[in-house]
Design a protein around this nucleic acid. Sequence first.
DNA 1: GAGTGGTCTAGACCACCTG
DNA 2: AGGTGGTCTAGACCACTCA
Lengths: 234, 234
Amino acid sequence: MNKGRLSSFQMIKDDLLEKIKAGHWLPGETIPGEESLAVEYGCSRMTVNRAIRELASEGIVERRRKAGTRVALQSGRSAKINISIVRKEIEARGATYRYVLLENEERFPPEGVRAKLSMKEKEKALHVRCLHFADETPYQYEDRWINLTRVPSAAQQSFEDTNPNEWLIQEEPFLEAEHVFSAQLADEQMADLLNVQIGAALFVIERRTWQGADTITAVKLSHPGDSYRLVSRG
Amino acid sequence: MNKGRLSSFQMIKDDLLEKIKAGHWLPGETIPGEESLAVEYGCSRMTVNRAIRELASEGIVERRRKAGTRVALQSGRSAKINISIVRKEIEARGATYRYVLLENEERFPPEGVRAKLSMKEKEKALHVRCLHFADETPYQYEDRWINLTRVPSAAQQSFEDTNPNEWLIQEEPFLEAEHVFSAQLADEQMADLLNVQIGAALFVIERRTWQGADTITAVKLSHPGDSYRLVSRG
DNA sequence: GAGTGGTCTAGACCACCTG
DNA sequence: AGGTGGTCTAGACCACTCA
């Protein structure tokens, strides 16, 4: 075992993956059981188990007790997208980040937002709107609603120096989120804010963030479509 | 151990995650070492190791030898997107899938595409264009180039019954891919194909797919912006 | 140098599923 | 009913890195 530098399980994983990619076993076919692979690789079953378990978690193979391990039928692809902090995203491009607060008011949210935040009627939420600039060019318009029942301390924030995105990540880490991506046209207001033509293409991300049963915040992020690219690998 | 039904490592993982979310250890703080946790939970170190290893792979904690395990600073969020087969995507909505082939020709690719496919000059590639309908409404326009050096059998395909997406997945599973998402405006041709107004918002996915050093295919997928939503969780 | 995580082992019991 | 994966153990050695 442990020829070379890689750990045994990593070598086994690589070897199996290579064989699968080479078509040694076709999608749907069963690969040998853990015990026989352990003998073949001259290692313990646990080591083989870890190699295959990781392949399974990556969707390369599918495992079932008694039925064994099969090469997965490639029904679809999944890609992981990193949605970073806007400031870092801009700074990573070597551009200068600037942030302008447009609104920070407690308001009665419109019905659609109220439902998203799962709030009661006649309850106020915090409405924060701001613009993020890259080298003085509008990069992202942020329209956010924050559930004050769940994050009352937001009411005391001015959001003049720290943007709400970063403040919330600091204040409430480990939230779950759901994203919806779409393409929309700039109306007069958006065109004005993002300094684009009316009718320009906008790349829009809507994110709802929650913890347990409580929705914390709902935000709509709009980018000029020609300048924003969300890249993913996998 | 194994109180309840969950496996020990899963219980430990859940317990640690809960404590982290509750702020028992703040981001950047060190959590106890494996050995002491093993004593605390009354299990072997391997069990604790697996629990923490999985938390690390999910980005919840960061581990370093000697330094120990720290709660990760939430620098950004990552979201996993499933990019499924178009047909299944449409059928999942209860709509009827229909597919129309528009072009299937060997051509000299334009310079940009040639570079993407990392092909030599004066080499032909296969250009396939098609439309995917949901209930007779244009759903996605697909403009694809296939590297014939790498997938020569594509030249023999008519792509009249099987769409190139599904054929490639069957023929060449286990590829790596890179996606770029953007918003664009419909020009005359796109408006005509997708049955939208000129200047309508389009949600565009560009995907490059490769295996090892060989780029297999590059494809541009365009959707009417108001009808397409790419949802992700995480 | 020493403490922490990274990995491996050889055996064990169990849960689940398929034939 | 039996085979397969799922998990756990108790101990071991190693590799990295921080102080």
